[in-house]
């Protein structure tokens, strides 16, 4: 037990044995952290390029669950997941990548509702929320709930169904993750049968997109723990660094040690800003 205690002291507390600086802050240890970060970065790049190709931890299941949670909290009925709405959302996201825009309306004047009609979804009420480049599902729902117009969409009592698409691509030359959330209330079936005669071309698009859409869901499930893991690892590492720097500063002042190394007070300020920045980069933008 005392050996473990000595080892911990050797790692974190400045004393004669570690040349009055916690071993965890020595150059050899810092080099080990650097090599570890380098290996991690290399491994992640390999996995990302070869298998996953996704840069976020956003899943349709989580978005669906969180949206319904918000509705329940506000005394509203939950929304049913609708495949057609998700296909329309997928078409919208693909359209944004293909035509390079970030808006509810396409550059050629198409509305979000045109994508619903494209997949043969006849609606009485419909709505759309967009988000891009968030790292986590929770961040998206929080951002939407903090925006009055998006919140109104999520909490609209008329809606009964919902669909999502999470699509990666290049927008303005930058790797982007788009999230499209589509709401709807279908026209009842009797009215639909009497007035609707779907054109063949629409059914073709639907068949073609179903496969792609399923692929997106499958790929996205694979990334659940990976991105989350890296974010938590980053946060844990910098908090670890922060703690050892605080311990170092505390003991240096307590033991009145003067040494010829870098000033850990400046490292401390730097690490605090890096931790704050990690919180900021999880946030994307919504419209």
């Amino acid at each position: 037990m005392s050996k473990i205690k000595d080892f911990i002291c050797h790692l974190f507390i400045p004393n004669e044995k570690n040349n009055y600086q916690g071993k965890a802050l020595h150059h050899d240890f810092l080099t080990v952290y650097l090599l570890f970060a380098l290996i991690l970065s290399f491994i992640f790049k390999k996995i990302d390029l070869n298998i996953l190709g996704f840069a976020t931890d956003i899943t349709i299941e989580k978005l669906y669950q969180l949206t319904n949670q918000e509705r329940i909290k506000n005394g509203l009925s939950t929304l049913t997941y609708n495949e057609k709405l998700s296909q329309a959302a997928y078409l919208k996201a693909q359209d944004m990548f293909n035509k390079n825009y970030w808006s509810h309306y396409t550059p050629d004047g198409k509305t979000p509702w045109d994508f619903l009609l494209q997949v043969d979804y006849d609606y009485e009420y419909a709505g759309e929320n967009l988000a891009k480049n968030f790292l986590f599902s929770q961040g998206i729902i929080s951002a939407w709930m903090n925006s009055p117009s998006h919140r109104d969409n999520i909490l609209k009592k008329e809606y009964t169904e919902i669909g999502f698409a999470i699509v990666n691509g290049l927008l303005n030359g930058e790797e982007t993750t788009l999230v499209v959330q589509m709401f709807g209330k279908p026209i009842n079936n009797i009215a639909k049968l009497s007035e609707k005669n779907s054109p063949l071309s629409i059914k073709k698009i639907q068949a073609a997109t179903t496969e792609n859409y399923k692929l997106i869901i499958t790929n996205n499930n694979k990334t659940i723990s990976l991105k989350n893991y890296f974010y938590n690892f980053n946060l844990a590492f910098f908090i670890f660094l922060l703690i050892i720097l605080i311990l170092d500063i505390y003991y240096i002042n307590k033991l009145k040690i003067i040494r010829l190394s870098a000033k850990n007070f400046s490292h401390l300020i730097f690490v605090v800003f890096i931790i704050l920045s990690l919180i900021i980069i999880t946030k994307g933008s919504i419209i």
């Binding site: 150059h27 970060a37 970065s41 790797e175 910098f238 870098a262 730097f270 890096i274």
Partner: peptide, 27 residues
């Protein structure tokens, strides 16, 4: 008046650790 090579290396190592770890999340 306390600059030496070890200090420069320390700043560079810490800087590179940050860049590599943040790169995992951003690009």
């Amino acid at each position: 008046n306390r600059l030496n090579l070890k200090i420069v290396i320390e700043y560079i190592i810490i800087g590179f650790i940050v860049i590599l770890l943040v790169k995992l999340l951003l690009i």
